Computed example of a mutant assay.
Amino acid sequence: MQKTVLERIERLTEDVVSLVLRGDEGPLAPWEPGAHIDLELPNWLTRQYSLCGDPADLSAYRIAVRHDPLSRGGSEYVHLFLRPGRTLSVSLPRNHFPLRPAPEYLFVAGGIGITPIVPMLRAAVASGAAVTLAYAGRSRPFAEELVATYGDRVRLGRPDLAALAAEFPAAEVYCCGPASMVTEAEAVFPRVHTERFEPTRRTFGPDTAFEVVCARSGGTIAVPADESLLDALNHAGRAVPSACREGVCGSCEVAVLAGEPEHRDDIGAPDGRMYPCVSRALSPRLVLDV
C-alpha cells in the first residue's frame, strides 16, 4: 500500500466530488489510462476508484466519487465525513481497461463512468488519433472541463448507440457507465472495450464442493458448496488480498497451476488466473500458487 494525504476535495456536481491524494512518501506508483486503485477508508471499508488525473504527474492521484443513495458506507463516508489533511492508504494501480493504440477512438460514457475515460481521452488526442466522446447522464462530472478542452469532439446527451456504430465503423470503442448502457454497447458495437462498476447478473450451475491444493504454502483445503473460494483460503490461513468481492476489481487474482476454474468475474480473467471472490471450480481439484 501507498501512503497519501488528502490534499483537497472539490465538488464537481451535486452528487460527485473529486479527491486529490498527494503522495506522503515521495512519488506515487506509475499508472496508465484506465487504471484504478483501492482506497482504504477510515471506517474500515475499501473501495475501488478509477484514476482520472494526469499519468505524467506522480506527485498525486485524482479520483472522483459519486454519492450513491444506496451506499453501503463507502461513498457516504467520503461525502459526509472525509476532510482534507487525512492520511489514506491506496493500493498500487491495476488496469483491466487499458487503452490500445488506434487511429480512431469512440468513447461512450455515462455519469461517473467518465472517470477512466478522462485520461484516455487526453492520451488519445495527444497521440494524434481521431477522437469522439459521447457523454450521457443526469449528472455529468467533468463535462464543462471536457467541452472547454476538446470542443466539438465532445457530444453531450443520451447517445443513439446504433447510429454511432454506423457513423464510426472503424473506431476503437471504449464504454463505461451504467450496466444498461454497457450491455447495450456490447450488443451494438462489433468491437468494444467495457468496464463495469457492478457485476453482471448471470446464472450459473449449483455451487459444488471442491478441493484446492496450495502449491506454495503446502496443504489441501476443502471448499464446501456454501463457501466462496476466497473465504475458504482466508479461513485456512492463506490470506488473499481482496476488496470488491464481486468480481469487478481484480484485487484477489491468483495463479492457477492445474485444474479447471469456473470463471464468474466481469473482468475476463487471463489464462492461468482466476478471481476467488466469485469464481469456483469445474474440476474436482484446483492447484493454486498460494
Rank of each mutant, 00 (worst) to 15 (best):
D271L: 15
P42L: 09
D271S: 15
P116R: 00
P84S: 07
L233A: 03
P276E: 09
A130C: 14
P116I: 07
A269D: 12
L19Q: 07
G151R: 11
P42I: 08
V240Q: 06
S217K: 11
Y61I: 00
D38F: 01
P178E: 09
C175D: 06
S18Y: 03
C249N: 05
V213H: 09
P224S: 02
R264H: 15
S251H: 12
E227D: 11
L58V: 11
R86S: 15
V248R: 05
F204M: 13
R11F: 14
A29F: 00
L229D: 03
L6T: 01
A102L: 04
I267F: 07
A136K: 02
H96V: 12
E14V: 15
P30S: 10
L156W: 10
R86C: 05
V278P: 06
E195T: 00
L92M: 10
S18L: 13
S242A: 12
S242E: 07
P42A: 01
R100M: 08
M1V: 05
Y174K: 05
V154G: 14
T183R: 07
G74H: 05
L133T: 10
V16L: 12
E32T: 14
D226Q: 10
A166W: 02
G113F: 07
S91A: 08
C252L: 04
D15M: 05
D15G: 13
V213E: 04
T149Y: 10
R202C: 05
Y61L: 03
S251A: 12
H193E: 07
L19W: 11
L286D: 04
Y275N: 01
A258G: 01
R22W: 04
P206D: 02
P199K: 11
G157D: 15
R62Y: 13
G110L: 07
L12W: 06
V240G: 11
V290C: 13
E198P: 00
V254P: 01
K3S: 12
N234E: 00
R11M: 15
L70I: 12
D271H: 10
A29I: 02
S127W: 13
A56M: 08
M181Q: 11
G250R: 14
G23K: 00
F189L: 02
I267M: 08
Y61T: 03
A215W: 02
A123I: 14
D15K: 09
G74Q: 09
L21G: 06
S180R: 10
G272K: 12
A187C: 12
F97K: 10
W31H: 10
H36W: 03
H263N: 02
